[in-house]
Write a protein that binds this DNA or RNA. Structure first.
Lengths: 345, 345
DNA sequence: TATTAGCACTCTCAAGCCGAGAGTGCTAAT
DNA sequence: ATTAGCACTCTCGGCTTGAGAGTGCTAATA
């Protein structure tokens, strides 16, 4: 195992990380002592830097350039050198204010959360709608649109709304549809998907068609790892100097655009982590080639084991971790409150 | 006014455009004659090129580089040299097949439309949900979630769904809510927003609260220029060589990300154009700085004056216009059919 | 009169070279 | 243990150069 770092080494590592996130450039011993007016000489710093480099926390892009933190360096920094900070109160208030004066609906909140995260962190943000693992029926509505066409709106416990257009084999009046919906609502209220699948319904043909659609929609919802995904601030990462080469940026952003890959990323991090903890994924951690230059900060929100979603940001590895982690955590907290206050039913 | 081009000049312009979209490089006289085995010499081509350059259709990046089409050149090409092509049948079938086997709901179709456009055109795609100018009430549903919390789901004519969480001042049972919804549904069926605003309702307190929310939601929907926006393929444009410099790409893509700017773009083109026609916006046309290097192809779909949306793509100015325009038109047609068959009510 | 061959000219681009500057590692002194 | 000093290494920007591509012009040709 690696030897414990001395306090001074920790300090230096921390300063290097800060200076590098500020300047986006390799930081040298002299710069360091000047920038922070350290009471030690650059030669001493050089010695310490050699140690940190040998331990794998720093890296030289080439001989006679300054040092740059490695993935491992960032990881050490994040786990040991960054204390739990809360966002400054004025900023908290600004954000909270935006939420409370926003429109009262889930879609608006999530959109806002993505937007706030993107602007605060100057990175790309990811927010998923809250989603239940145990899908349960809440309410069904059947709305006749034209001839035998019916718009079916299914509300699940937790507030997820699923809709589908049904083409019934027989024409049916709105009254009949409403009566049918009422019957199903009564019978199915708060039932889990398993219950509904195993239930026997004695209904006329349109009824069985509807039930089948309900079951199908619930199954689909069940299969979903995550709810709808809200993205914002993708262009922020294009502004970062490390992505002056488009190819890097393209591969990173394509991760967000391809639903499959994104689901993969979200689901793996979902599993590894309890609600409340913030997960920091630095440089793809060997698994995600596309993220070699990036870091992803994710956390869950909502009500554990009942109704949860994910919020997070994707930015360059050179990222103000302290501030960003706090922001993500804070937004997650806000969303948790909103979910708890409004969405359980 | 400009003199009419000779047939040979048109042919050359057309070939230059094609060759340039293929190679992404300035095209020279010699390349041209070799590539297409033309029965005239490179010297003749040079003479013609001089003419086309003087007319403003071509441009030299620098002395002794080949020629590149100007915005005007592309515009001429698109309006005069590109005949209405329909997509090859197998491709049409592939696309249509995807649509018909997709899930039967609007959200899925629009998502798919964006995805298809993005992959077919290798550019960024934009699809907006169909939206009515004359907002009208279709159906209301009130679902009790907890205590005095109510999930209100409002379906508008055309299938747009709006939801909101209401905190009623009094506790109300689900039965009361259902009765209330039923009464409102009966009274408001197919009413326009103006009618509903001017109606007098004699209802108990929760009722007035609900009506107020309904009015508000309808007003909000009314104000919207466009429905929900689906984007896809943004990373496609990053792959184009003209965006090797990130800054260009950033400004173009930020146009898609900022709802305000995007609405602006969509609304201006909506106004200038009847359904059925495809609008081609080349190089921002002086108005959009961000699009200096880009072209946007847009068209409307749906039912004119009733329920319309926009589909289109944003790509580099150097774009296979013929194919892309056909694809956009075809997808718009598909969506129009789907809307007509499923969404009018 | 329209086309073409030929040629001089221009300009970019990649490669190579050079010097300045930044930063290091080592050594010897404190 | 720290530091001053110094030689060494490497990048980066600027400069030059030669090759190559492409043009515009002129004079010859059909």
């Amino acid at each position: 195992m690696k030897p414990e770092l001395t306090e001074r080494q920790k300090l230096l590592l921390s300063l290097i990380v800060h200076e590098h996130t500020r300047s986006a450039q390799p930081v040298g011993s002299k710069t360091l002592v000047e920038q922070f007016t350290l009471p030690i000489s650059s030669a001493t710093i050089r010695n310490e830097m050699t140690v940190l480099t040998e331990l794998g926390y720093l890296r030289q892009p080439h001989t006679s350039a300054g040092r740059v933190p490695t993935e491992e360096g960032y990881r050490f920094f994040v786990s040991n050198l960054t204390q739990q900070t809360t966002l400054p109160a004025p900023m908290r208030n600004t954000i909270a204010h935006q939420f409370y004066q926003a429109q009262q609906d889930l879609d608006g909140w999530l959109r806002l959360a993505a937007s706030v995260l993107a602007t605060q962190s100057q990175a790309a943000s990811i927010v998923t709608a809250p989603h239940t693992e145990k899908v349960a029926f809440k309410h069904l509505e059947l709305i006749s649109t034209r001839a035998a066409q019916v718009l079916m709106v299914l509300v699940l416990v937790g507030g997820e709304i699923r809709q589908q257009i049904l083409s019934l084999t027989d024409n049916t009046t709105q009254e009949d549809l409403s009566a049918l919906a009422a019957r199903i609502n009564e019978r199915c209220a708060n039932c889990s998907i398993e219950q509904i699948i195993s239930m026997d319904f004695i209904l006329d043909p349109p009824g069985t068609q509807v039930i089948e659609a309900v079951r199908q929609q619930m199954r689909l919802s069940q299969q979903l790892v995550t709810g709808e995904i809200y993205l914002d601030g993708m262009t922020n990462v294009l502004a970062e100097p490390e992505f002056a080469d488009t190819e890097q940026a393209r591969s990173a952003l394509s991760l967000l655009e391809e639903r499959g890959k994104l689901d993969d990323l979200l689901s793996r991090t979902i599993l590894g982590n309890e609600v409340g903890g913030v997960q920091v994924l630095i440089g793809g951690e060997g698994t995600w080639q596309e993220l070699r230059q990036c870091s992803v900060i994710l956390t869950r929100y909502g009500i554990p084991d009942q109704l949860t979603g994910t919020v997070g940001v994707l930015g360059p590895m050179r990222m103000p971790y302290g501030r960003t982690i706090s922001t993500v955590r804070f937004v997650a907290g806000l969303l948790s409150d909103l979910v708890a206050e409004n969405l359980i039913g």
